[in-house]
Write a protein that binds this DNA or RNA. Sequence first.
DNA 1: CTTGAAATTTGGCACGC
DNA 2: GCGTGCCAAATTTCAAG
Lengths: 152, 152
Amino acid sequence: MVELDETDRRLLRKLQADASLSLEQLGAAVQLSTNSVWRRVKRLEAEGVITRRIALLDPQAVGLGLTVFVAIKTGDHSFAWLSRFREAASAHPEIVEIYRMAGDTDYLLKLHVAGMEDYDRVYKKLIAKVALSDVSASFAMETLKNERALPV
Amino acid sequence: MVELDETDRRLLRKLQADASLSLEQLGAAVQLSTNSVWRRVKRLEAEGVITRRIALLDPQAVGLGLTVFVAIKTGDHSFAWLSRFREAASAHPEIVEIYRMAGDTDYLLKLHVAGMEDYDRVYKKLIAKVALSDVSASFAMETLKNERALPV
DNA sequence: CTTGAAATTTGGCACGC
DNA sequence: GCGTGCCAAATTTCAAG
């Protein structure tokens, strides 16, 4: 964990919202010269606080408007099973997030798919590759908030 | 929904992985001149396929290593309740995603917090603002995959 | 040792072909 | 879709506090 001052936090908030801001614009926002900003950003990258810069796409525009959450229970808690599951699930680009959970569900998956049929296709492929004792899918009807920024 | 050719898809995959690539680097990857790449990217932005470019932070580095999913049921399905809930939940930067779900749970929230205590703090603030008939939190023990790229 | 101004280099952008 | 040149922004150097 890295120590951050208020200026770092303000820069991080700005960059999490819009990474295309110029050093000059960032400087104006935090009251610093462009190259003080440059140095801070470089430092934050070197410290591993900023990991990368990516482009975000509109899911609707690329025809992947349905978000699905899948809660999975396994009867088999062996390491071999975990390896198989991890490999099988990772191979599907539709599965964008995988968590090992505490409590009732063992694994939680998040998927971006075109529609129900597309989800069903992925589901069938997954159960063909690895044994799952209980699979429960929940479909998102509406996305009320989808923030990628961490609250720094 | 926008029609994309194979070159568009390859550019989108590249930019979703790393938006700091120069037009020259992108051109080398898709066998196109920097100029053609520039026009395609501009078009994809104009069409709303590429929405924005953001910086990603390491959750561990900024001390927000715990991901929590919260399934919520409400007894009150009025529009007034939805407005209140949406407003209350949106106000918390720790709540990064909110979905209205089909099926058993009404709403699913995803949070990034420092730890259990931090979650509890947000939970208490939320229930103080809006009536929730059933709240069930699930904590992620391990993140096996966390891909932001859509499978184009 | 830290900060900002000025110089240099690189990449983004607009035109003609 | 490609080549050329202009302009803006990123990066490096350097001088001052």
